[in-house]
Design a protein around this nucleic acid. Sequence first.
DNA 1: GTTATTGCAAATGATTTGCACAAGG
DNA 2: CCTTGTGCAAATCATTTGCAATAAC
Lengths: 165, 165
Amino acid sequence: MNGSVQARLDEFIRHKGLRRTAQREVIVKAVFSKDEHFSAEELFERVRMTCANTSRATVYRTLGLLVEAGLLREIDLGDDQTTYDPNFLDKPTHNHLVCIDCGRVVEFEDAQLGELTACVTQRLGFKPIRQALKIEATCEQLRNHGRCPNLIAARLSGKRLRKKR
Amino acid sequence: MNGSVQARLDEFIRHKGLRRTAQREVIVKAVFSKDEHFSAEELFERVRMTCANTSRATVYRTLGLLVEAGLLREIDLGDDQTTYDPNFLDKPTHNHLVCIDCGRVVEFEDAQLGELTACVTQRLGFKPIRQALKIEATCEQLRNHGRCPNLIAARLSGKRLRKKR
DNA sequence: GTTATTGCAAATGATTTGCACAAGG
DNA sequence: CCTTGTGCAAATCATTTGCAATAAC
């Protein structure tokens, strides 16, 4: 899959008359090396481990490029920084549940949901392009027991804790 | 309705051992005088028309208070500033469609949607607290004719244009 | 050789905060 | 009075941008 991403980015780059660079390659690898959500700063740190000479500015610029190319999506988790989600290539229509207790993010897909929003959108006179559902919820495990080690969530993908300023 | 908001805020203020002030009253009036979405800056300007001596800081602080009291909701419209939505008292479960062409925001309610997300949430082992669905779409009118004076949208509420930086 | 790209540091812009003064209860 | 609220200006902090140097093609 990683390879396919590179290919699709190359295509995009060629199409727009842009250029392949070492930095972009490193950054793309870092972005798609995990299925975790991340912030620009976190990505910057991850990139720095591999390639010491890559600037924050280039990370930001490349993120913009990936989003424009449709390979990466910005999502809103309710905090002050933009979160990036690399999983839309695999699951183009997934949505997010955020645990208010621990901040864990659970991705889920639901076919009915897509149909429903398509319906609503057309009824209003529009053509649906994309949708984002964010559910905020509390963890049942936490209420019943002490902690929030939600097993289901652990099995699913996104599981990053986030701090509000 | 405006009166009821003041009453609910007073209750909240008393409960928390806070104080009623002229500024808070002015700001609350400005917030709930229209059903339009707004940014902190826009509200600040609106408040300034009535009451010249109210600072931006107080506007921000009061917005925080209203959100905490559950009278006002922050929503994400995809731009860089927080948008506030005063319509959740009347329509506690409404969601938003954003027209990509013109930035217009249309509010809509859908009972099925609520049931569906409640279902999904429980299936994942959580207790739903709140949800936010944002649909991004293009205007059919625009594609067929020249402009985007979508009649349906005009009839519904939120209709503020927003600028990306 | 052109033209896009990068790194750096400075700029931006929304939001927050420290503090001395004002005002609610 | 005692504590919370306010205005002001300065501080934050994520993100963007101008620019000279560097590297694709």
